[in-house]
């Protein structure tokens, strides 16, 4: 489980996050929603040690704040960044091999398990990632994150740029993996509707602060909160 307490991040004069606290329990999906610039990505980046933050972020009992990104990753925190972070100049299999560095499971076994989960990737394993479609890239990013058998999965806008059916498919996969591997998932989404559908809990960020937090069903039902995460649309 991930426990964030009193988290603040400043970029120069801009406060990106202010005193953010919430918990993401094991085996559940916690979604973080909010308008553009609410600080969702910054939140994930500070968990991974990419943004300098104050406060506390604990993985079970371990303090993550102040650790190097590499070390956080090696503790089993997998982070699929904004834009998926697939390295286009490497082949599909090379991307996957990179993912196994943080784990102790033998390479062949890890590859086999991911190819079983995502058969499309096995067919294209020798192709450069640049040649993949958006959906395939999403698959590759997920497979690369899961191949090290992480305990925490941080997802930054997995639905971005995907067709609606593919988004639905992706969300189903996330829900299924979370249950079967008992992962702690923190899902940052612009597409709040589909995120709230699969998440157990939700955190609504507004201008760097927590506007609301609770079971996602309640958050989804609250018409007051919609203006925060649906932006100007309502």
């Amino acid at each position: 489980m991930i426990r964030v307490a009193g988290l603040s991040v400043t970029y120069g004069a801009v406060r990106a996050l202010r005193d953010v606290s919430f918990e993401a329990p094991t085996g559940q999906i916690t979604t973080v929603i909010g308008a553009n610039g609410a600080g969702k990505t910054t939140l994930l980046r500070s968990i991974s040690g990419l943004a300098r933050a104050e406060g506390s972020i604990r993985l079970d009992e371990r303090e993550l704040l102040g650790m190097a990104t590499e070390d956080v990753a090696r503790l089993g925190v997998a982070h699929v960044p904004e834009g998926r972070g697939v390295i286009a100049e490497l082949t599909v299999e090379e991307n996957l091999r990179l993912g196994t560095l943080a784990s102790k499971v033998p390479l062949a076994e890890s590859l086999a398990s991911q190819y079983a989960q995502f058969p499309a990737l096995e067919r294209r394993r020798r192709n450069y990632a640049a040649t993949l479609s958006g959906g395939e890239r999403q698959m590759l990013a997920m497979a690369r994150a899961l191949i090290a058998r992480p305990s925490v999965l941080l997802l930054d806008e997995p639905s971005l740029g995907l067709a609606p059916q593919v988004t639905a498919e992706t969300m189903r996969t996330i829900a299924q993996l979370c249950a079967s591997e008992s992962l702690t998932v923190i899902l940052v989404e612009q597409n709040a509707k589909s995120a709230l559908r699969i998440a157990h809990d939700a955190v609504v960020l507004h201008l760097g602060q927590v506007a609301a937090a609770g079971p996602s069903r309640e958050i989804a039902a609250d018409p007051e909160l919609r203006r925060y995460y649906l932006g100007v649309a309502s």
Partner: peptide, 24 residues
Amino acid sequence: TNLGLQMRAAALSPEVSRLLGVRV
């Protein structure tokens, strides 16, 4: 080699590499 793969990845995309545990 894995070392070479990590070196290429670190050069192409240092941040993503670090997120995958590569000691850039």
